[in-house]
């Protein structure tokens, strides 16, 4: 194995946006799985405030499981999840959402029988912000995704795939999250739509929302990421600053074997 300091777990110090600042999200030694099997064997990662972190890995490595553990859909068997320094490991998913973790799971799980507007409202309803925020959030979201403004009265099931994915992301940011977890937002979208979506995601990042993103389309995701973790067989096997992790590097290291 070619030695590369930036890519060895343990030797890297993790993303450090502002030295000494409490990370927006920290995962410490999480062990988790479903039924009998263990999928994550001690995963640790850090997302500093206002940064974008990319989580890569082959299928079955445990990327989605990691996100589910962070958002509370899955309870870890060991380890902790810290949101701005606060241990939220014991909290159920809906309370974590109210504290500022917004998880967009894979597969565009919007509420298809409701209208676009209702979907967006559900995003804001329970996350404890006042009405002025709601108005502001609508403006914000419609600014990001103008197509949703045009179709706000339409039933969500009538949207195209790309629009549904945008709605899923928009719904999550309606809660004004501190950390946004995106699970393969580009899956199943046409390349042009992916490009569009990635631009929007970059805007979110620039708004100061911390991002933790699982992606397959490495190039566009890498372009907006500050830091990259590579997950394999339920363990972090490599990490480094996105700038240091060149696409060619990742390709040979990770993609060639597992595209």
């Amino acid at each position: 194995m070619a030695p590369d300091a930036s890519a060895q777990p343990g030797t890297a110090t993790g993303p450090t946006a502002a030295a000494g600042a409490t990370p927006a999200l920290a995962v410490e030694g999480v062990v988790a799985g479903y039924h009998g099997s263990e999928v994550l064997h001690g995963v640790s990662l850090v997302v500093p405030p206002g940064s974008a972190v990319l989580l890569l890995g082959p299928n079955g490595a445990g990327k989605s499981t990691t996100l589910a553990t962070i958002s509370g859909l899955l309870r870890p068997r060991a380890g902790h999840v810290l949101l701005s320094g606060r241990d939220v490991t014991a909290l159920p998913a809906h309370e974590r959402a109210r504290l500022g973790i917004a998880h967009v799971p894979e597969g565009r799980r919007i509420f298809r029988r409701q209208t676009v507007e209702e979907n967006l409202l559900i995003g804001a309803d329970f996350c404890g912000h006042d009405r002025t925020w709601r108005t502001e959030a609508f403006a914000w979201v419609f600014d990001l995704f103008p197509v949703l403004a045009r179709k706000r009265g339409n039933t969500a099931s009538t949207l195209s795939g790309g629009e549904q994915q945008m709605l899923a992301v928009a719904q999550a940011i309606m809660s004004r999250p501190r950390v946004l977890l995106l699970d393969e937002p580009s899956a199943g979208l046409a390349p042009t739509l992916v490009k569009q979506l990635m631009e929007r995601v970059r805007l979110l990042h620039e708004r100061g929302i911390a991002l933790l993103m699982v992606e397959q389309v490495v190039a566009s995701a890498l372009a907006i990421a500050d830091y990259v973790y590579v997950l394999r067989d339920g363990q972090i096997v490599a990490e480094g600053a996105a700038a240091a992790m060149q696409q060619s590097d990742l390709e040979s290291r990770y993609l060639a074997a597992t595209l």
């Binding site: 194995m1 070619a2 074997a257």
Partner: peptide, 14 residues
């Protein structure tokens, strides 16, 4: 064995 694989560290176990 494809050349990309042989040279590649991550595929060492492979």
């Amino acid at each position: 064995t494809p050349p990309t694989l042989a040279a590649d560290g991550a595929a060492g176990s492979v």
